[in-house]
Structures are given as structure tokens and as C-alpha cells.
């Protein structure tokens, strides 16, 4: 890991559900203003790991430090203050299904700022246009396609210009064109806002283009958190297997490496 300021750090985190151990001695550092992508096969605990960072699940053992403070020891008010810096896109978008798209995106502005309704309207329109969402203001989430829901979720996550963005499977279930569009949106907004991004994804190798660091979850552990090139050349057997399974053989200068 480089010498960037640390935004989130997990130290020796364990988590079990019943008799199933999902996280085992997890250590990971999320550096500031960089994109860290957590990859791994289904059911390896990637989303559970993300929920620990968000303070939605408490660790059985270990520490989850967000901006230097243990999230388990924060009071409700401190946790809420910390979360004002978060922008989160859930796997299923988690839009409030009884209010319109416009109201969903406007919700953080209405609840957490003192902006007037006309300012809120302007900002929401801007964000929806940025996400290529036209004429959907008055629609309800159930009337949208999966890709549109994801983009509305992304608009809502970014509306307050957060410092840390968590994206859980941002492109799962989307077609190639839509996936590229989502990656482009994440990339351009990150360049503009300079946020720290934590992305859980299956979309290997495309997600590597977006990543500064890639962490592999396997056997309930983080097997390594490395820059994309080093990740692909890693000696760790889990990482090597993962790279081979998802990307095929790696070649450098005409010679097979793995």
C-alpha cells in the first residue's frame, strides 16, 4: 500500500453467521482518493465486508476504523455524522419504492441540507441528466429497468458530493454498453470530486481499468490488495487461480507467466 492517507482500515476482523465463518482475520486499508476494488467469487463475503465498513454489520472481533475511529465505538450521532461523508450504491439500488425517482434523488438534499425547493430541483435535474436519465422524474422505481435503477441509485449516492463512495456490484445485470456508461460516470465524477471509492465487483477484467488497487476475497480472507498489474502477476495461489479463471493465461514479452 502506498503512502496515501488512510480513510478506512480493517484490523483482524472476524464475522460468523451461525456456524459459518464469513470473515476471518480481515486486514485491509483503503487509501484516500483512490479506487479500491474488492473482487472474488460469489458468496465469499464481499458485500458483508462492505457492510462492516458502512457500520451496518458489527464485527465479532477486530476493529473497523473509519477516518481513524472505530465504527463500533461510535455513538448513534457520531455514526450519523460519519455517514454524512458517505455515498452508497446498493446491489439492488435500494431506492425507496413508494416515492418517485425525483424524490429519491432529492431525499438526501431535503433531509440533510437547507436548500430551497428550487435549488433542490435544479441539482436533482443536473444529476439525472448527468446519468442520462430523461423524463423519469415522476416514475416510480418499479417502473424502471435494472440499468435505470442503478443509475438513479448512483445519482442519489453522488448528489451530496460525498468523500467516500461505496458501490456494491454497480454493473451486475447490465448490458455491456450500460456497464461502460456506468464506469464512465464513476470515472468522470471521481476525477471531478476526488472521492475515495470502494467497489465490490464481479466484472473482471473490465473493472481493473477503474481500479487503483484490487483486493481478492477468498477462503474468508483478503488474499492481497495490490495495484492491477501486480495483482495479475501475484504469486498468491488464490490470486493466481482467480486471474487464470477470469482472464485466462497472462503473457509478458511473448512468454507465458502463469
Amino acid at each position: 500500500m502506498p503512502e496515501h492517507a488512510v480513510v478506512i482500515e480493517l484490523r483482524g476482523v472476524d464475522k460468523s453467521f451461525g456456524r459459518q465463518k464469513v470473515l476471518d482475520q480481515i486486514d485491509i486499508v483503503i487509501p484516500e482518493a483512490k479506487t479500491t476494488v474488492i473482487v472474488g467469487a460469489s458468496g465469499q463475503g464481499k458485500s458483508v465486508l462492505l457492510k462492516h465498513m458502512l457500520g451496518l454489520i458489527r464485527a465479532d472481533r477486530g476493529e473497523v476504523l473509519v477516518l481513524g475511529r472505530d465504527i463500533a465505538r461510535m455513538s448513534n450521532r457520531e455514526l450519523r455524522d460519519t455517514r454524512t461523508r458517505f455515498g452508497v450504491l446498493f446491489q439492488g439500488a435500494a431506492l425507496l419504492d413508494s416515492i418517485t425517482v425525483f424524490d429519491n434523488v432529492a431525499l438526501p438534499l431535503r433531509e440533510r441540507t437547507r436548500l430551497t425547493e428550487s435549488e433542490i430541483r435544479k441539482r436533482v435535474r443536473e444529476k439525472l441528466e448527468l446519468m442520462n436519465l430523461v423524463d423519469v422524474d415522476e416514475k416510480y422505481p418499479a417502473q424502471l429497468s435494472g440499468g435505470m435503477k442503478k443509475r438513479v441509485g448512483l445519482a442519489r449516492a453522488l448528489i451530496l458530493e460525498p468523500k467516500i463512495v461505496f458501490l456494491d456490484e454497480p454493473t451486475t445485470g447490465l448490458d455491456v454498453k450500460m456497464s461502460k456508461e456506468i464506469y464512465r460516470l464513476i470515472h468522470t465524477t471521481q476525477e471531478r470530486l476526488g472521492f475515495t471509492a470502494v467497489i465490490v465487483s464481479h466484472d473482471v477484467p473490465k473493472i481493473f481499468k477503474l481500479a487503483d488497487y484490487i483486493a481478492l476475497m477468498a477462503a474468508s480472507r483478503i488474499q492481497g490488495c495490490l495495484p492491477p498489474v501486480e495483482f495479475q502477476l501475484s504469486d498468491n495461489p488464490y490470486i493466481r487461480d482467480f486471474v487464470q479463471e477470469t482472464m485466462g493465461e497472462i503473457y509478458t514479452s511473448g512468454e507465458r507467466v502463469t
Partner: peptide
């Protein structure tokens, strides 16, 4: 209950909305 199952309550908490 449906809001809990579809992570809408988690989403509210993550937006710092009590």
C-alpha cells in the same frame, strides 16, 4: 418489513437519515 428486506432502511441509514 419490505423496506428492511430490500435494503431501503439500510440505504436510509447510509444516507445519514435516521
Amino acid at each position: 418489513g419490505i423496506m428492511r428486506n430490500s435494503e431501503q432502511i439500510d440505504a436510509l441509514e447510509c444516507m445519514a437519515i435516521d
